[in-house]
């Protein structure tokens, strides 16, 4: 009885093996194929071209990340986190930057949606595309 139960369980888990193998092996293959590249090149390849712009920003500069349009939201968030530990504020337009009004990135009716406000504009402006 116990043996039959085990067979049924293994059969039910077979799709899990298959799906994981189907994702995991190409992932490792890709990793090994790109292992010789410098880490920044790998990041640019996976994260997008904005990462090249991030790398060009001086380490001590404060940065205003401005979304080219609303679709650039995710890239703006990723650019902001890649710029750490610099001071980084995200704006949804150049006009909002003039007003020092950071973007409200997530509007959830049952959450606090406040973005912290800066005291002054950043040293560098980085416009991020979708």
């Amino acid at each position: 009885m116990r043996r039959a139960l085990r067979v049924v369980i293994v059969v039910l888990m077979l799709p899990a093996f298959w799906m994981t193998a189907r994702e995991l092996f190409p992932y490792v293959k890709y990793a090994l194929a790109t292992a010789h590249e410098p880490v920044d090149a790998r990041r640019e390849e996976v994260w997008g071209r904005w990462y090249a712009d991030v790398r060009a920003i001086p380490p001590n500069a404060s940065v205003d990340v401005v979304m080219a349009n609303p679709q650039a939201r995710d890239n703006a968030v990723f650019a902001a986190t890649a710029l750490a530990p610099r001071v980084v504020f995200i704006y949804d337009s150049m006009d909002a930057r003039q007003r020092l009004q950071p973007a409200k990135l997530y509007v959830d009716p049952v959450a606090v949606n406040e973005a912290m406000r800066p005291a002054k504009p950043g040293d560098v402006v980085l416009v991020v595309q979708p």
């Binding site: 995991l24 092996f25 992932y27 490792v28 890709y30 990793a31 090994l32 790109t34 292992a35 880490v39 790998r42 990041r43 996976v46 994260w47 995710d74």
Partner: peptide, 14 residues
Amino acid sequence: LLLIGTAIVPLSDY
């Protein structure tokens, strides 16, 4: 396999 992959491929989740 995960340790190899994650040591090389940059993090890509949200």
